[in-house]
Structure formats: C-alpha cells, structure tokens
C-alpha cells in the first residue's frame, strides 16, 4: 500500500474519469494563488461520482479548504474548469450561482450557526435559497409547512427536542448536527464538509461521521469532506484524494490505502 502511495506521490495522477453523466463534481486544472503568496492550488484535477464519499487529506495549508470553496466560487479560482451538478459555477450569473449553491450543503469546521437564534431558525435558513425567502428568516415568521420540515430535519439528526434551544447554548457536537440539519433543509444533493469534526471531542466526532455515513446511505447524498483524521478517511470515504503544496499527490480508493501509506504521505 505504501508503494501505491509512493508511486502516486512521484507522479500525480491523471484526472479520475467517471462514467459520463455520473460525475457530480469534476475539477480540471484548477489553480489559485492569493495576492502576494505562493500558489495554494496548482493544476488540481479530480472527480467525484454520484453517491460517492471522498476524503480530502493534506497538511494545513495544502489547499483543501480553498479547493472546496473554489468549487462553489466562494473563492474565485485563477484557472481551471469546474463542473458541479451539471453546471459550470464560473460561467453562472449571481442569481444562477445562488441556485447552484442551494443544491450543495456546506458544513464548516466551526458549524457557523447564527448564535442567538434557536436551532429551528438555523435549520430553517437552509430554505433561504430554494424559495424560502423572507419566510425562512426566523421560525416565528415561517409558514407551518416550512417549520414542520425544519423540525423533521432536526429529528433526522436526533435533535428535535432541542428545536427551541439557542444555537450558542448547544454543545459542539449538537451544533454540528444542527448544521447538518440545515444542509438537509436545503434538500442538498451534495455535501461539502470542511474538517467537520476538527473542533469536536472524539465521541462527538464519531457521532457526526456516523451521521454523514447514514445520510449518504439513506439519502444517496454525495459527500466530500476534508480531514486530518486518517482513520475517518479510511473508514468513511470510498476514495481519498490527498493534496500536498496545492497538488494532488494521491487519488485512490480507500480500500487500496492504509494508515501506514497515509502516514508516509504526511511524512
């Protein structure tokens, strides 16, 4: 396995090809350099098939978070092509881009809930871009159908009883589950999770990863997550893409890799 990693480390792989029409995300030759700094991404190519779970690995500064953000144009890439859910985010106008973003749930390391609002309002925000508009600002103003759906999303992550609890009074694990419920409220087809368990204790982290696995299996979601936890990458991902210095160094099915190979990659 180490040999596989070493071989891949020596020669960056060609872009993974998915059967036509099944790639939810395809990135070709993506590059990004921030003003006055070194290149964060250099000619990055990879693809994610529908229903696949992909783990992005790499040391701090390897470009994992930038890569996810570029895919949604939260950060503007300098070069390269992106195909996300059948659209090219770089070619979309503002309103079209918002509609595309609404189809992708983004889970942040620090969950990024609105702290003073109850969990239910935070989940309801998932409907903001899919026509919820003003009615999805606060649960008090939302119609019954939206409130019911938001409560169901909370129930799916096991937090229906916490609907009226303020987000800033929830534990880290609970907050991250509310963030997942918010993505479910989006009716997202795909999830990006940027180090979703990095700020959680091991037990809460495991709970959140199990929740992801459950969602992928039951709802057929596609998941791309970044992590430093090698065991999570091997246990929960179908495929592992590892970045070093903004370049893809490993792109292989997780069953072909082991902890030793990944540790060797981290050096």
């Amino acid at each position: 396995m180490v040999a596989v990693a070493a071989a891949r480390a020596e020669a960056p792989p060609a872009p993974v090809t998915c059967a036509a029409g099944t790639a939810e995300l395809r990135v070709d030759g993506l590059s990004k350099r921030f003003a006055g700094g070194a290149a964060v991404l250099s000619d990055v190519s990879f693809a994610v098939a529908r229903g696949e779970t992909v783990a992005l690995l790499g040391a701090n500064g390897a470009g994992k978070s930038t890569l996810l953000r570029c895919c949604l144009r939260l950060i503007e890439p300098d070069a390269g092509r992106i195909r996300l859910l059948g659209s090219d985010p770089r070619a979309l106008k503002a309103a079209e881009l918002r509609r595309l973003r609404a189809r992708v749930g983004f889970i942040f390391q620090r969950h990024n809930l609105v702290p003073r609002l109850p969990a239910l309002s935070n989940v309801l925000h998932g409907a903001l871009a899919r026509g919820g508009g003003m009615r999805a600002w606060f649960h008090e103003a939302a119609p019954r159908a939206l409130r019911t759906e938001a409560l169901e999303c909370l129930d799916r992550v096991g937090l229906a009883a916490f609907a009226e609890h303020r987000a800033d009074r929830l534990s880290g694990g609970q907050s991250q589950r509310v963030a997942v419920a918010r993505a479910l409220m989006q009716r997202a087809e795909m999830l990006f999770a940027d180090e979703p368990v990095a700020s959680l204790d091991p037990a809460a982290g495991e709970e959140v990863m199990e929740l992801f696995r459950d969602l992928v299996r039951r709802a057929g979601l596609t998941l791309v997550f970044t992590t430093h936890n090698l065991r999570h990458a091997l246990d929960y991902a179908d495929r592992i893409v590892a970045l070093r210095g903004g370049r893809v160094e490993i792109d292989a099915p997780s069953r072909e890799l082991d902890q030793g190979a990944l540790r060797a990659f981290y050096g």
Partner: peptide
C-alpha cells in the same frame, strides 16, 4: 454564519 448562508445561496 454569513459565510455559511452565502455558501448555501442566500
């Protein structure tokens, strides 16, 4: 939270 809502297309 602003980045999160922006990322979901708000």
């Amino acid at each position: 939270p602003q980045e999160a809502l922006g990322a979901m297309g708000a």
